[in-house]
């Protein structure tokens, strides 16, 4: 009667929005522990799998977001993750508070576009602001992901150290509220 519940593997999706993939690299820095992790989880949409959309193979348990929200595509991807993931995690400085891309926020986007594509010295003749409908439009400001969707957990750091990511995920998978403690929480 004390038989453990049959454990299915948890589905985990990851993506990088306005980020540099540094958080994903730090994730890979868990090294051989990745194999232990794969005993417990299977990856849905992620740079590791090249699956293009999450949720197409059923709902995900954990969605991990690197990067902030700087353009319309980021909004769509983030909303797709929120729709399809039971738990959404902001991973790293940019997802948590906008990070490096948000350093443009004190500038007017119109000035940035004009400078980069129209008035900067050295531009080719006839260069104009790209307006192809295929391209996602940038938002007036960069936002952390909690301003766009509800976020359940936050793991700061630029990037968060691999040990912090490991501790965080193993706690979460084991059903514990993640506890980081000194050395694992940092903002830089």
């Amino acid at each position: 009667m004390n038989a453990p519940l049959p454990r299915r593997k948890l589905r985990v999706a990851t993506t990088s929005l306005a980020g540099c993939f540094g958080c994903h690299m730090s994730f890979l820095d868990i090294d051989e522990r990745l194999l232990d992790l794969l005993e417990l989880v299977e990856f849905d949409r992620s740079p590791l799998t090249d699956i293009k959309h999450c949720g197409t193979r059923g709902p995900c348990d954990i969605g991990i977001i690197e990067g902030g929200v700087c353009n319309a595509e980021n909004v769509h991807v983030l909303q797709e993750f929120r729709r399809n993931c039971k738990i959404l995690v902001a991973l790293g400085a940019c997802a948590v508070n906008g990070g490096l891309p948000a350093q443009r926020n004190h500038l007017d986007l119109r000035d940035i576009l004009a400078t980069v594509y129209q008035t900067e010295a050295g531009l080719a003749q006839g260069t104009q602001i790209p307006n192809d409908p295929e391209l996602p439009l940038p938002l007036n400001q960069v936002h952390p992901i909690h301003e766009v969707v509800k976020v359940d957990y936050f793991l700061p750091g630029c990037p968060p150290p691999a040990d912090a990511i490991w501790k965080f995920l193993t706690d979460l998978i084991a059903g514990r509220t993640p506890q980081l403690g000194h050395g694992l929480i940092h903002y830089d």
Partner: peptide
């Protein structure tokens, strides 16, 4: 920053004001 670590602040939580300074 150190107090953020001490008290376990993982997110700014509120909407960022991004002042121009």
């Amino acid at each position: 920053q150190a107090l953020g670590y001490e008290l376990g602040v993982l997110t700014p939580h509120f909407n960022l004001l991004y002042p121009d300074r």
